[in-house]
Amino acid sequence: MLNTNDTREDKLMTLKSFPIMNIATINKSNPLSSVVLFYVDNDLNFYFVTRENSYKAKSLLEDNKISFSVWNQNQMIVQADGVASVFVDKENKIINEIVESLKLLGEFWPPLLSFSESDYILFKIKPNWLRALNIKDQKIATEKPSFTFIDL
């Protein structure tokens, strides 16, 4: 469980413990929000897979700006924004990591698998900034949210 003295590695471990995040993209000047499975590497690059013909894929191919948040119950909220790029995963290492992270979700069957009308596309998100709020340590009231920025 996180506390106020948690290091970057502690925060990374918390991020690795819950593989679902919410992303926001720009779809023809309109905001678009989606929920995706993700994998985060040790350099705090985030990866997610979607279908080539999904709205989020098309919007990111038009405009690569992205923001996202991860909410890990009773532990941590993470917010970030950055840029997304198509990632070529020749040896399927990232796909394997995403599938591995699914084990954390028990019997969950990803909706992504139900939509098979096009091929997959894998995106890598390189954050511009990333900050975390420790929920566990929050008092009843604070003067301002105690987000801490995580070194990239």
Binding site: V49, V99, K103, P110, L113
Partner: peptide, 14 residues
């Protein structure tokens, strides 16, 4: 289907 087959594998092994 490279994603589906891996999910099957993972879940069947579980």
């Amino acid at each position: 289907d490279k994603f589906l087959i891996r999910v099957y594998k993972s879940k069947l092994e579980a």
